[in-house]
Design a protein around this nucleic acid. Structure first.
Length: 418
RNA sequence: GUGGGAUUAGUUCAGUUGGUUAGAGCGCUAGUUUGUGGCACUAGAUAUCAUGGGUUCGAAUCCCAUAUCCCACCCCA
C-alpha cells in the first residue's frame, strides 16, 4: 500500500514554506499595526454552532461540512470558516465588556467537503479578522484597508475591490417582496436552481451564473437601489471613506455572498489569476450574528482571505521570494579528529544563533565540498590536521572565493560581522 | 453534483500499427590520483507502467470498472 495525500489536501513542502511564512508574518504585522490581536480558536466546534451561525440553508452547511459523532455521542464539525468560532469565543469569554471595537485576527485551517478545482481545497487556510462593537462605516473602511495594506506589503497589485450593500432585515424584506413580484412571471423559464431560490432565497437569483446573462436578471431591481435610509447612509459613508483614503473600488450589485449572516456592507477582492475561483478575499458586516448566537446585540464585521489563492496570485504576479539559506557556514572535515572539532564548533555556533552544518553522511572531503556548494551555503571552512595544529582556519566566501583566516574559536564572531 | 482531459523512476516527460531485458532530462550516490564547491565528463541506484478485471500466443499500449489529479460549470476563501 502506497499512502497518498487525501483528496483536497496538500503537503506544504520545505521548498515552498518560506512564502507561507512571509504571508503569515506580513498579515500579522499589518493587523498589529491596526490594533488587531491574534486569536486561536479550536479546529472543531459543536455542529449546531455552524448551523446557527453560518445559516442552515447555505451550501456550506447543508452539503460541505465535515461532521461526525465523537465517542461521547456529541455531533462535532470541523470548522468550515472562522467567524462562527470567533463569535462563539467573543460571547463565551465575555468580550462584550471590553472597550470597543474588539479587534481580532486569525490564521486558521478550514474544512469543506467540496469538489476540487483550481484554488479550492478540502482542507484550506484562511487569514481573517473580526471587529465587534463598531456600527459606523469607519470600521468597514478600516478592515478593507487592512487588506489593501496587506496586498501592498506582499507586493501584489491590481486586485480589484468590489463592494455592495445587501441592506438590513428591514430593507431586505421589502426588497425580497419586490423581487418576487418581478420574477414571478419569469420563473418557469429559469434554471432549476433559480426556481428553488425563488421560494427559499430570491436574493440569490440575481447572482445566478446560469441565468445571469439573461435580460430578466440583468434588469431585475437591485437591492442597492432600495436600501432604507440608514443603510444608504452607511454605504455612502463607506464610499466616502474609501475615496478619502484613496482605495479604488467598483460597486458590484451582484455580490450577495453565500453565508447567511451578512448585512449591509459586503465586499470581495477579485483577481483574474486564480481561475474561476477569483475571489481571494471576501467579507462583510454581520450586525445580527452575535445576537442570533444569543450574545448581546453587537454589530460585527470581518473578512476571510484564502491563503492558497493568495499565494497563487503571488506566483502569477511573480512576487514569490527565494528560499533563504538558514545555514550560514559549512564546516568540512578531513579526518576523524577534525570531525569531532567540527561538531564542537557547530555546537558553539548554534548556541550563538548561527546556522551551520557539518558532514552527517560520511561523505568524502570532495563530496562535502559539492554538498556545501549545491546547498548554497554562503561560507565554508575546512578543518584538517593543519587547522587542528594551528588553531586557525580559512573561512571561504563561496560567492566570490575569497578566504579570510580566522581563529577556530572566532568563526561566530567573523560571521556575525558579515 | 454535471461535463472534458490525464495517470509510466523522487520529479518532469518520451514510449511507433499491441512484439524481446520500459527510456531521457533534472535530482540522488560515487568517481575524474587522496586540502577546496557550483560547470563538465564517467559510472551507478531507483519503475508491481494508478488499482482490479477482461481480450490476446503476447498489453505501458486495446476494452470495462474503480481511485486519484487537472480543466470547465455550481458554490465559496
Amino acid at each position: 500500500m502506497r499512502y497518498v495525500t487525501q483528496k483536497g489536501t496538500k503537503d506544504i513542502l520545505p521548498s515552498e514554506i518560506h512564502n507561507w511564512q512571509i504571508a503569515e508574518q506580513t498579515f500579522a504585522d499589518v493587523c498589529h499595526s491596526f490594533g488587531y490581536e491574534e486569536i486561536r480558536i479550536p479546529t472543531f466546534e459543536q455542529t449546531d454552532l455552524f448551523q446557527r451561525g453560518v445559516g442552515d440553508t447555505t451550501d456550506v452547511v447543508t452539503k460541505e461540512m465535515y461532521t461526525f459523532e465523537d465517542k461521547g455521542g456529541r455531533s462535532i464539525t470541523l470548522r468550515p470558516e472562522g467567524t462562527a468560532g470567533v463569535v462563539r469565543s467573543y460571547i463565551e469569554k465575555g468580550m462584550s465588556s471590553l472597550p470597543v471595537p474588539v479587534r481580532m485576527f486569525y490564521n486558521i485551517t478550514a474544512f469543506r467537503y467540496e469538489k476540487m478545482a483550481k484554488g479550492r481545497f478540502r482542507e484550506f487556510h484562511q487569514f481573517g479578522l473580526e471587529a465587534f462593537g463598531a456600527k459606523g462605516p469607519d470600521i468597514d473602511a478600516e478592515i478593507i484597508s487592512v487588506v489593501d495594506v496587506f496586498f501592498r506589503k506582499m507586493g501584489l497589485q491590481n486586485i480589484a475591490l468590489h463592494i455592495n450593500s445587501i441592506g438590513c432585515p428591514n430593507c431586505r424584506g421589502e426588497y425580497t417582496k419586490l423581487l418576487k413580484d418581478y420574477f414571478r412571471p419569469h420563473v418557469a423559464s429559469m434554471c432549476e436552481d433559480c426556481q428553488a431560490r425563488f421560494e427559499k432565497n430570491p436574493l440569490r437569483m440575481i447572482d445566478c451564473k446560469v441565468d445571469g446573462g439573461k435580460d430578466i436578471v440583468k434588469n431585475a431591481p437591485r437591492l442597492i437601489d432600495y436600501l432604507c435610509d440608514d443603510c444608504k447612509e452607511h454605504f455612502e459613508g463607506l464610499k466616502a471613506r474609501l475615496e478619502a483614503i484613496g482605495i479604488s473600488y467598483t460597486i458590484d450589485p451582484n455580490i450577495v455572498r453565500g453565508l447567511d449572516y451578512y448585512t449591509r456592507t459586503v465586499f470581495e477582492f477579485v483577481s483574474e489569476n486564480v481561475g474561476t475561483q477569483g475571489t481571494i478575499c471576501g467579507g462583510g458586516r454581520y450586525d445580527g450574528l452575535v445576537g442570533t448566537m444569543e450574545g448581546p446585540e453587537t454589530p460585527g464585521i470581518g473578512f476571510a482571505m484564502g491563503v492558497e489563492r493568495l499565494l497563487l496570485e503571488a506566483e502569477a504576479q511573480g512576487v514569490l521570494k527565494e528560499k533563504p539559506s538558514y545555514v550560514k557556514i559549512y564546516i568540512a572535515s578531513m579526518s576523524e579528529a577534525a570531525k569531532i572539532e567540527a561538531l564542537k564548533i557547530c555546537y558553539a555556533l548554534r548556541n550563538a544563533g548561527i546556522g551551520c552544518e557539518t558532514d552527517m553522511a560520511g561523505r568524502s572531503f570532495k563530496a562535502q565540498m559539492k554538498y556545501a556548494g549545491k546547498q548554497g551555503i554562503p561560507y565554508l571552512a575546512v578543518i584538517g590536521d593543519d587547522e587542528l595544529n594551528s588553531g586557525e582556519v580559512k573561512v571561504k566566501n563561496m560567492a566570490d572565493g575569497s578566504e579570510t583566516p580566522v581563529k577556530l574559536s572566532g568563526i561566530g564572531e567573523f560571521l556575525a560581522g558579515n
